[in-house]
Nucleic acid binder design. Structure first.
Lengths: 113, 113
DNA sequence: TGCGGTACTCACCAAAAGGTAAGCAATGGG
DNA sequence: CCCATTGCTTACCTTTTGGTGAGTACCGCA
């Protein structure tokens, strides 16, 4: 799910390549109601390291999912927001999120954790 | 995305834990129109190794997504099919697949591959 | 003068995911 | 008897992913 992979076998494959990994769906979700700055995201996504956050944001930016806006201010400020493609991707993820909510108890029970 | 991970931060997180990885979405898709036997799946999913296929099927089975039916026959026959949960998961993946189809050209272009 | 906040960047490591190749049990056919 | 078929299992290895912790540049403030 890194930054490279070739021709996909189907649309689902392509979508998973873009949104796969431990943090990307959560990042997308954090951005669903507007722009957020780097520090805000870091604080919302508990447990993420700065390295991972930047890495994932950069990949999402390269894939045209998020937009990065730099404000040259006194403490630097950088805001991330969804592009049109990012917004539609987020919408396409909603049913999956709903499914997860409904089945979360079962999944959690079935796995040891 | 293996067989273990604890409490999830949201439904999307749980769903990704179940369906994440290189092959699981493709396996689900292969099963969307009925039961398939092991060998059929192996031939459909070009490039998958037997080890990976079984591993993923076992995890999906443990998560209650697929059902495994063994027929004690002369060359052994094993059929895999979607459970109710698996079927609804597959439906929840449809919008994501559509998104992927629409944006595949862009994604493929943006990445080297 | 040195401290804190912001947004990174880098080097290094550990864990997980994925791939390769071989072997195995059961049995029917040549 | 030997081979092929089917559905696995196992050992070993490489690649990818994720995590830790340190360091940097910029500035304002006390």
């Amino acid at each position: 799910m890194g930054a490279k992979r070739g021709p996909f076998s189907c649309g689902l494959d392509a979508a998973v390549a873009v949104v796969g990994g431990k943090w990307k769906p959560l990042i997308l979700w954090e951005l669903h109601d507007g722009a957020r700055r780097f520090g805000e995201l870091r604080r919302s996504l508990r447990g993420i390291s700065e390295k991972m956050l930047i890495q994932q944001l950069r990949e999402l930016e390269a894939d045209g999912i998020v937009h990065r806006e730099v404000y040259r201010e006194v403490p630097p400020r950088v805001e991330y927001s969804l592009t049109e493609a990012g917004s539609s991707l987020n919408k396409a993820l909603l049913p999956l999120g709903d499914w997860g909510e409904e089945h979360m108890d079962h999944i959690t029970a079935v796995r040891g954790a």
